[in-house]
Simulated scan of single mutants.
Amino acid sequence: MLMSSNSSGSGSEARLQYGPNGFRVIRPGQHVFCAATGEAIPLADLRYWSVERQEPYASAQIAAEQLKP
């Protein structure tokens, strides 16, 4: 994952591009919001997302529920 050490955007929502092995910061920030729950997820804690849907999830359980066929 590529993260900027720049502190601009501190306390704000980041904009990310999600890939199969990580994410790229498009707009710096401190967190993203879970697509299912709306919970703020600090970038340092972000582990689950959908590449196809380009959305983050707060936990593995939430990701599994969202991605069920």
Rank of each mutant, 00 (worst) to 15 (best):
L46Y: 06
S10Q: 13
G19F: 04
E39N: 12
L43I: 07
L46V: 04
L16V: 02
N21P: 01
I26L: 00
R47W: 05
Q17K: 13
E52M: 13
V32N: 04
P28T: 00
R24S: 14
V32G: 04
R24K: 14
S50Q: 08
R53T: 10
S50H: 09
A14H: 00
R27F: 00
E13K: 06
C34G: 09
Q17V: 07
Q17P: 01
S50W: 10
V51D: 00
E39Y: 06
F23A: 01
H31Y: 15
T37R: 04
L46R: 08
S50E: 11
E52W: 06
V32W: 02
G22F: 06
C34M: 11
Y18G: 02
E39K: 14
R27V: 15
R27G: 01
Q30Y: 04
F23C: 04
D45A: 12
C34P: 09
W49T: 09
L43V: 08
Y48Q: 09
G11H: 14
Y48C: 08
Q30N: 09
G11W: 10
Q54K: 04
P42A: 01
A35E: 13
P42G: 02
E39W: 05
Y18P: 09
Q54F: 12
F23S: 00
P42M: 00
I41E: 05
A44S: 13
G9V: 06
A14S: 04
Q17N: 12
F33W: 05
T37G: 11
G9T: 13
R53V: 06
G19N: 06
Q17R: 14
R15F: 05
I41A: 07
L16C: 10
C34R: 07
F33D: 10
V32F: 05
S50L: 08
Q17G: 03
Y18K: 07
E39S: 06
E13Q: 14
A40R: 14
Y48D: 08
P42R: 03
E52Y: 08
R27M: 02
W49P: 07
G22R: 07
E52N: 10
A44W: 07
S8V: 15
V25G: 02
W49I: 10
I41Y: 04
A14F: 01
P20Q: 11
Y48P: 03
S10D: 14
A14D: 01
Q17E: 13
G11N: 15
R15M: 01
G29R: 00
Q17T: 10
G22L: 09
Q54W: 04
A35Q: 12
R53A: 15
P20M: 05
R27E: 04
E39I: 08
A36Y: 09
E13W: 01
Q54I: 08
D45N: 15
S12F: 10
L46F: 11
F33Y: 09
C34I: 10
S8E: 15
